[in-house]
Design a protein around this nucleic acid. Structure first.
Length: 421
RNA sequence: GGAGAGGUGGCCGAGUGGUUUAAGGCGCACGCUUGGAAAGCGUGUAAGGUUAAUAGCUUUCGCAGGUUCGAAUCCUGUCCUCUCCGCCA
């Protein structure tokens, strides 16, 4: 959520910066709603003050046995006026809040300007892809030939997009997750969590999935709970409505979770195999940091995810999203993409974002700064990493002509195998 | 799912309709005291809105409504925690 005071004070500046993301955004309604709400607040507060004072006087009169009906009648009128204004105030305040919740974050000034994916900046290209001397198979065929995934059975049980990992496939999935979790825990100062997979609407509002992207989430109406699209949601909400001590920052949190995505509107796109599924696993990294250091933290987050790709011996490139392609909550975002030689596609396996105070404002996550003043923390997150596309790229990159897979050295202890055949 | 108890400031806890402007304690901060510390004594100690303001006003006692001139207190709904019973991995 963007600070209303900020919008109030520099409307045109913010308007311009949001226009780089979406030209249709207009702040005029918000400005006028804010103005009218503030006028109403002033009026209401004055009347409340009057009511408080007079009620207190009645209290004293009554205790002295001197109160008569005329005083009550007079105050009844005031009380009714206040009640009406309170209703109006509530409505207007909800209205403004909902407008603010629908507004995306302001892109950081360093973000390349553009309208879509095609304007994203290539930060680091892959210098030389691993050479494969034969025609590489798709991960779908490899997985089927080696009996690693039973897509048909998954579809029978839950529908398309719910892969059923089997035998060495299930083992590889588990090995990948454990390898990645251990990597972060051993090399960086992360605290591991295992979170709930179902969350209240408020939690999804904090991170920005709600209220705008309700259609993308699995929703259990009976209990008013949502299935998490990423562990970012529960992790970020751990400190909802809290004021953290300065000494507690930065906080580095990690969780492996199943992620559930409806992928509404993306039917027909990447439907084959593991490229776009409704349920997958991901190791998520979340940071709560001092506002002064959030951009350094973004770089280190990105570098951390990259190291995993090196260890898995995958070919990758780094993209910086342009203003038009940036996610709703992000101020700046890097995507890591791995090369899948069978599919002949770059696959997004990690997204590392700085949300600045966008999420912390929505979730009321604050800290006490050097001077004792309360301010919002900055939050960041990054995938480290999402497995299905890593799984796919791994099979395709490390496949041999005889159909076997050579397991990267770093992963071998977790798998207990040097090759899958 | 059924029955009961409870949710008050950083923490504990008093408060069942009106000087509550939330007692008291703990913790914390500062000061006095001291050779120094502890103890003791004193002062201070929430967040949001508005504002030039650390002034004033206002909101907030889980949350949302309601009753009343006036609600932490009464009523309704709801969420959460705990205990017991039932079911269950």
């Amino acid at each position: 959520m963007i600070d209303i005071k900020n919008i109030r004070e520099q409307q045109s500046l913010i308007q311009d910066r949001l226009a780089k993301r979406d030209k249709s955004i207009n702040l005029d309604n918000i400005i006028s709603a804010d103005l009218s709400l503030r006028e109403l607040t002033k009026k209401l507060n004055d009347l409340q003050s009057d009511q408080n004072r007079q009620s207190k006087e009645i209290g004293i009169l009554k205790s002295e046995g001197k109160a008569d009906d005329s005083v009550f009648a007079k105050l009844k009128e005031l009380s009714n006026t206040i009640k009406d204004l309170e209703v109006e105030h509530r409505t207007k305040s909800k209205n403004l809040k909902s407008m603010l919740l629908d507004l995306p974050n302001i892109p950081h000034s360093s973000v390349p300007v553009g309208t879509s994916e095609k304007d994203n900046a290539l930060i680091k290209d892959c210098e030389s892809k691993k050479e494969i001397s034969f025609s590489p198979k798709s991960h779908v065929d490899i997985a089927q030939d080696l009996d690693l995934i039973d897509f048909e059975a998954g579809a029978k049980i839950s529908g398309a997009g719910f892969p059923l990992y089997k035998g060495n496939g299930a083992l590889l999935e588990r090995a990948l997750l454990n390898f990645m979790i251990d990597f972060h825990l051993k090399n960086y100062n992360y605290t591991e969590f295992f979170t709930p997979f179902l969350v209240k609407p408020d939690a999804a509002i904090t991170t920005g999935q709600l209220p705008k992207f309700d259609e993308d989430m699995y929703h259990i109406e009976k209990d008013e709970l949502y299935l998490i699209p990423t562990a970012e949601v529960p992790l970020t909400n751990i400190h909802k409505d809290e004021i953290l001590e300065l000494s507690a920052l930065p906080k580095y949190y990690l969780a492996n979770s199943a992620c559930f995505r409806r992928e509404a509107g993306s039917y027909g796109k990447d439907t084959r195999g593991l490229l776009r599924v409704h349920q997958f696993n991901k190791v998520e990294l979340v940071k709560f940091v001092h506002p002064d250091s959030s951009y350094e933290e973004l770089e280190s987050l990105k570098n951390q995810a990259i190291k995993l790709l090196d260890l898995l011996e995958l070919d990758y490139r780094i993209i910086e999203l342009c203003t038009g392609d940036l996610g709703f909550s992000a101020a700046k975002c890097y995507d890591l993409e791995v090369w899948a030689p069978g599919e002949e596609k770059w696959l997004e396996v990690s997204s590392c974002s700085n949300f600045e105070d966008f999420q912390s404002r929505r979730g009321n996550i604050r800290f006490r700064d050097e001077s004792g003043k309360v301010d919002f923390v900055h939050t960041l997150n990054g995938s480290g990493l999402a497995t299905p596309r890593i799984f796919a790229a791994l099979l395709e990159t490390h496949q041999n002509q005889d159909g076997s897979i050579t397991v990267p050295v770093a992963l071998q202890p977790y798998l207990g195998l040097a090759e899958i055949k």
